[in-house]
Design a protein around this nucleic acid. Structure first.
Lengths: 144, 144
DNA sequence: TTAAATCATACTAAAAAGGTAGGAAATAAA
DNA sequence: TTTATTTCCTACCTTTTTAGTATGATTTAA
């Protein structure tokens, strides 16, 4: 039931980029330094974010990373999915996994499916912008 | 974000006891057999349930396990907590853990705290009875 | 007395999480 | 065109957690 450091760090890295963007791309070294994450580990998390098209990278001397869209267009659902993997509480809910032979008789399946729907809706309802700066979410509640 | 087999199996074992209770205690061998869980692993999960006072055990020749209260008095929250451990998505929300030094500045803390509240409320709202037999939850929705 | 059950402790193997190393490729600036 | 700085890529290592097993003691109804 715990979220891993990849998900937590990935989110913090996204917030970091959002808060420090100022024209040019931001180097990973700066991000890792500010967030207290080792450069190498941050690099592996950043690759997941790039692959999911959540950040754009540029190489070379003045290279670095920047967001690929406005902060209010990101949901935590997509950020967490990119870094953590899918959000299914149990594998048998995933349609890419082999179907559980006990599925029809399973008394708990609907309960897990409902649980998944609730947490997915929650993360989908929160935008990255609501965690950046002195946003309303941080200040006093769930806002966009 | 995944729930472990201890939590899933533990819940199934509780459902199994509820559905097969018929005067005498139910032997672990029968439960493990029906649920397709190895006897030894089931034993270690059952110990967690006993320690949490969710089931009563009796030893000796006709011994076994039975529920310690009516099925509608159990919530999934207590069953999952007993088998999985706490339901915190991140350790720093737990008051038994050392306080995170970045806590005051953390942009994500409130979001995680709200998330915890939502999942805890969800599991607290579902009773064991709603997963037993042809209950309303299983049939068509969230019921007690 | 004995067979059948739980209780208790310790151990092991496999998987996942967390993190590192080294170098290739790109690119802006000197 | 060279060089310094950056991301990209593959592979690897270590630690922790999960999952499961082994062995034997204790309890108790028949």
């Amino acid at each position: 039931m715990k979220i891993s450091t990849r998900g937590r760090y990935g989110l913090r890295m996204m917030i970091d980029i959002a808060e420090h963007f100022d024209d040019g791309p931001i180097s990973l070294e700066a991000i890792a330094e500010r967030q207290g994450i080792s450069f190498k580990y941050a690099e592996s998390i950043m690759r997941s974010l790039v692959k999911a098209n959540l950040v754009k990278s540029s190489r070379g001397k003045t290279g670095g990373y920047c967001l690929s869209k406005k902060t209010n267009k990101y949901t935590l659902e997509e950020i967490l999915t990119a870094t953590e993997g899918d959000l299914y509480p149990i594998d048998c809910l995933s349609c890419t996994k082999p179907v559980c032979p006990k599925q029809d008789k399973c008394k708990a399946r609907k309960m897990w499916a409902d649980y998944y729907r609730i947490i997915k809706d929650y993360f989908s309802s929160i935008s990255l912008s609501s965690l950046v700066g002195n946003s309303s979410f941080y200040e006093d509640g769930l806002g966009i």
